[in-house]
């Protein structure tokens, strides 16, 4: 008999994340893949894989989160805000402020002592200050996302990129390149612009609490370091940061 207690899936704009947890909330199996626009097919395929890995039956509840959550048949649909909070609290067991920079939006969540959402901030309607912003601009600079740390100049050497609007920033970068600015200096400028944007959201939550980070952008050490610089406080990147939302969704299975 399988120990699988619930399955959480997080269908984001950039990647599909899913995991199966046991009755203690421990991850038994997981999948992370680039998002396919055919959400239903991808979900069916990956769910079948997860179930095969863990022996989970079709009776095991499936909790869906992320932007694609309404597209799939699930036992429950819960927002990413609640799921990231649950996933974070499961790991840390303490109150804090969680920064989740996803592909489409950025959230700053104030987590209370009992692991509930006390308050949250999200970016505005556009992709300013999100993973997508980083992706688009770094692509323009021909810097692979996972190697950005090796391609940025030192602190104080970055050029100023004033816009965090993805479209405007891209044209700003084009003109900086045309003016002969160093690619490394522009890359740092871009990361600093994103950090400024995120810290303006984080500025609205209490200062004394520890900072945690989840979401795909947390895998990027250079970005985390620049964000910590901008906030003037250390940031703890959660284990397997991309999976925090799906894990939190699975943990919502009992409620």
């Amino acid at each position: 008999m399988s120990n699988a207690a619930s399955i959480g899936i997080d269908i984001g704009s950039t990647s599909w994340k899913g995991c199966v947890v046991d009755s203690k909330g421990r991850v038994m199996a997981s999948r992370i893949q680039e998002s396919d626009p055919r959400i239903k097919e991808q979900t069916a395929r990956l769910l079948a894989e997860l179930m095969a890995d863990t022996g989970a039956s079709s009776q095991v509840p499936v909790i869906a989160t992320g932007y694609g959550r309404k597209q799939v048949e699930a036992t429950r649909q819960v927002t990413e805000i609640t799921c990231h909070t649950k996933g974070c609290f499961h790991q840390t067991g303490k109150p804090g402020v969680l920064i989740d920079i996803g592909g489409q939006d950025t959230k700053v969540i104030h987590i209370g002592p009992k692991g509930s959402v006390l308050d949250f901030q999200m970016n505005d309607k556009c992709a300013a200050g999100t993973g997508r912003f980083l992706e688009v601009i770094l692509q323009r600079l021909r810097i692979p996302l996972d190697q950005v740390g090796q391609h940025i100049s030192s602190k104080g050497e970055g050029v100023k990129v004033s816009s965090t609007c993805t479209v405007f920033a891209e044209s700003e970068v084009v003109s900086l390149v045309a003016q002969g600015a160093r690619v490394e200096a522009i890359a740092r400028g871009v990361l600093e612009a994103l950090a400024a944007r995120v810290s303006s959201l984080a500025g609205k939550v209490p200062e004394q609490l520890p900072l945690f980070m989840s979401g795909g952008v947390a895998l990027n050490p250079a970005m985390v370091a620049i964000l910590a610089e901008a906030l003037g406080r250390p940031i703890t990147v959660l284990d397997n940061p991309q999976l925090v939302g799906a894990h939190g969704a699975a943990l919502s299975g009992g409620g």
């Binding site: 932007y67 927002t79 990413e80 805000i81 609640t82 509930s116 959402v117 006390l118 949250f120 999200m122």
Partner: peptide
């Protein structure tokens, strides 16, 4: 809740409703 009273072009429904849903979920935590 960021929106516009009449111009649906200045509005992102998914993001707004997700925000609202998260707000409501927090009541029952």
């Amino acid at each position: 809740l960021e929106a516009d009273h009449n111009d649906e072009r200045s509005f992102s429904k998914e993001q707004a409703l997700t925000r609202l849903q998260a707000f409501m979920e927090a009541f029952d935590e």
